[in-house]
Design a protein around this nucleic acid. Structure first.
Lengths: 204, 204
DNA sequence: GCCATAACCATATCGACGTACGGTTTTGAG
DNA sequence: CTCAAAACCGTACGTCGATATGGTTATGGC
């Protein structure tokens, strides 16, 4: 049912996510939707939470995989961050949904809270990664993980916006897509300046 | 009349910007609104354009002032970019409006076009500034202005999102606000690496 | 087999909104 | 002064969407 919401929002925007519309899309009756969600806001909130959770899980999976394979933290982060960019249709759709909700969050404190939590989550994951980077020699010891996390997430968020708005744009002679990848790489390189010389078994 | 739209959107969100509501807010009748705008979409589009134009003008004024006073480009840019961040109530309100519209732009190609143009405008101004920076020795000659502009605008956009979402957040021991300022400064420092040794009278 | 509970449905209600319409007043050029 | 155009107003209409209501049909523990 939440999937129906997400499909509708992704294809036709939040305004198209009417109760009747969701019911039709999901193949249920209006009454059933009401049975499970006491109001439309509830339904939307649930769907939004689910989206942010999905993103979180996808990133967490990438990180777990990287840890298991003992890759350098910076490389794992690079892959994880690309996961957040709208680089294919699936992620574009996901981005549409996220942005639509974050737009409504402007005047809905409940949704705003979800948005805040989602953003805090990626920042925290980044900060932990930077912190761990110190222990295995990839990061300078006196670098502030919180500040670095803020910068990295800002870059990624800003690039996501640009990629979504105009995916066909060219930056000089290259595609925006390749430019974005380079900028993420570069940004990480500014933090993970050292060689990975030991593989800590730290979490994340 | 557009001012009424902006006030409503800023205080109560796009959904509150109904034709009757705008009329009331502006002190006019519904009929008059219709007289000037053939549809509600027209009205919103006009208001959105006006907002982006205002932002453009504010930034352009900052730049013109900097040029007149022959300040280093990097310093002028720093001030200009801070202008884009939601650092006080006025800019927060403006940011709310912009974001609300950019949310609706997700499923409205006309609005999306405005958003694209606005973003392109900022980037172009940045690219020109970087280019000019080369001529007066602030920027390495072989640096790609388009790429630099993409990076800078991404950072600023991402920081704006973070500042809006959670203005009270702290980054380590400092405020997000001061962290954001430092990150912008730092980002510019990565591009404008040289001393300003001559003041070109180039535009912007 | 009983029956409470959950799953499920169709329709009615009611408010809100965009727009159409028919009107009056103001204005300013000739 | 004239009169057409523009400014301006209030209301009515039709639509659509959220929610309420009053149901019927499974389901599963006893």
């Amino acid at each position: 049912m939440a999937a129906a919401v997400r499909r509708l929002v992704a294809t036709a925007g939040l305004d198209a996510a009417t109760v009747a519309g969701v019911a039709r899309e999901a193949g249920f009756s209006v009454g059933l939707v009401q049975h499970y969600f006491k109001s439309k806001d509830d339904l939307l909130l649930f769907a939004y939470r689910q989206v942010t959770e999905d993103v979180h899980d996808r990133v967490a999976a990438r990180i777990a995989d990287g840890v298991a394979r003992q890759r350098p933290i910076s490389a794992v982060l690079f892959d994880s961050l690309l996961e957040l960019l709208p680089l294919d249709d699936a992620r574009r759709a996901e981005y549409r949904v996220s942005r639509a909700f974050s737009g409504r969050a402007l005047d809905n404190e409940t949704l705003a809270e979800v948005a805040r939590a989602g953003a805090a989550d990626v920042r925290d994951q980044l900060a932990v990664a930077v912190h761990n980077g110190k222990e295995c020699g990839e990061v300078e010891p006196d670098l502030d993980p919180a500040l670095a996390a803020t910068r990295i997430s800002a870059v990624v968020e800003g690039l996501a916006d640009q990629l979504y708005r105009d995916p066909e744009r060219r930056v000089g002679t290259r595609t925006l897509r390749s430019a974005a990848e380079e900028l993420v790489r570069e940004c990480l390189a500014g933090v993970f300046t050292g060689e990975c010389r030991q593989y800590a078994n730290a979490k994340r």
